[in-house]
Design a protein around this nucleic acid. Structure first.
Lengths: 213, 213
DNA sequence: TCCTGTGAAATTCTTCACAGCC
DNA sequence: GGCTGTGAAGAATTTCACAGGA
């Protein structure tokens, strides 16, 4: 049952994260000129076990060679396809504050197929400026401009009290994926995926680790 | 078997994350003047089930009141203790680039008990400046200054190729917790906890969600 | 009646272990 | 010999469901 071209089967989120990890390491192996990689090597770089790697990959069919490992190029291409990275995604950033503008200038996104095509802010002093080569628009024109820019994904970097309003507007504008840096709980319509990055929460996990050693 | 004062039992990471979430919402309830909160309400704000909330909390003893719910203040205090937030943590940021300096100026940390006490960078043009009220030190004096500042947690915001070196030096300087923004795989000595925040990876999870709908 | 605390069941995720192929 | 693919076992986590206190 090999996955047919477009639609990719539903995978558990921890698995998706591992696949993304594997891809990262595979690309490093690829740059190093390695033709094949074994599940053990992938496991070592990613902090899992070889059995886990094989299980994760076997989910999509078998493209390893016994006794050898996986063909680096082939596996990279396959993972890109599974993760939807065989196309470019168009990103907008909402909120040109500290985090938003740091992200706008972050060069790492474009390199991985995520192109920032627009930035929005409510502050008239910021509107019209250019950040990282991208124009800052007034958030008033969010919906129309997002359609115009054909954005797929939005990065939400606004104060918590505005997050819900913007998220709702993003949903209406046809954005189906949001990377949320506000710490507010968001309610979004079905069909919109939200991933939250909460730095205070990450610090709290570390805090717990420190006291529970 | 109620947890005794200082040492807190080992909990699975997903549980810790949920506890942190609960705390966030509880604080909102507290500000709204709510004396008690039910597991159902906590579950709703956090996107889980009431049974999950009760299981998570019952792990530390029973401090809910049947028919009523949990005492807001009491539960806030308890969660703070479990998460190690009943004390202040001293944070250093290594790397005063885009992400590092955005974090240094981020007001949300101090508000939640994490105080940025020092910043380090290798660029002489940045050394000696002040970011968000905190001095930028030369990374050459990392070890001695970290001991001097009595830092508990380090935020690693350096280029990937330097991440391992710095992580090793942080370990030697007595830092037991690292929040890592570089995307390199880190090897750290036992006793050092690392949490990685990888924005490209988060975007890839969203990408996968978009193609697998 | 409302809501907690918790064994038991169900489900999900991970590891084991080995047959099979290069 | 080395390494994949995978059923089966095992572990961990989540959900169910209900007894019992406010």
């Amino acid at each position: 049952m090999p996955a047919s071209r477009a639609s990719v089967r539903k995978i558990a989120e921890p698995t998706v994260r591992r696949l993304s990890h594997y891809l990262r390491y595979l690309e490093a192996f690829e740059r190093a000129g390695r033709g094949t990689v074994s599940s053990g090597e992938l496991a070592h770089s990613g902090g899992t076990t070889s059995a886990q790697v094989r299980k994760d990959l076997s989910f999509f069919g078998s493209f390893g060679k016994r006794g050898l490992g996986y063909d680096t190029h082939e596996l990279v291409a396959k993972l890109r396809q599974i993760l939807g990275l065989d196309r470019a995604w168009r990103l907008v950033i909402v909120g040109a504050g500290k985090i938003g503008s740091a992200l706008a200038r972050h060069p790492g996104f474009r390199g991985r197929g995520f192109e920032v095509v627009g930035i929005f802010d409510a502050d008239p002093n910021r509107v019209g400026h250019v950040l990282g080569g991208v124009a800052v628009w007034d958030v008033k024109v969010l919906e129309s401009e997002i359609r115009h820019l054909r954005a797929d994904i939005a990065v939400l970097a606004v104060p918590p009290e505005e997050a819900q309003t913007i998220a709702t507007r993003l949903g209406r504008a046809g954005v189906h994926a949001i990377l949320d840096f506000s710490t507010a709980p968001l309610e979004v319509p079905a069909g919109v995926t939200v991933r939250s990055v909460d730095l205070a929460l990450e610090l709290e996990v570390l805090s717990h680790a420190l006291v529970s050693r």
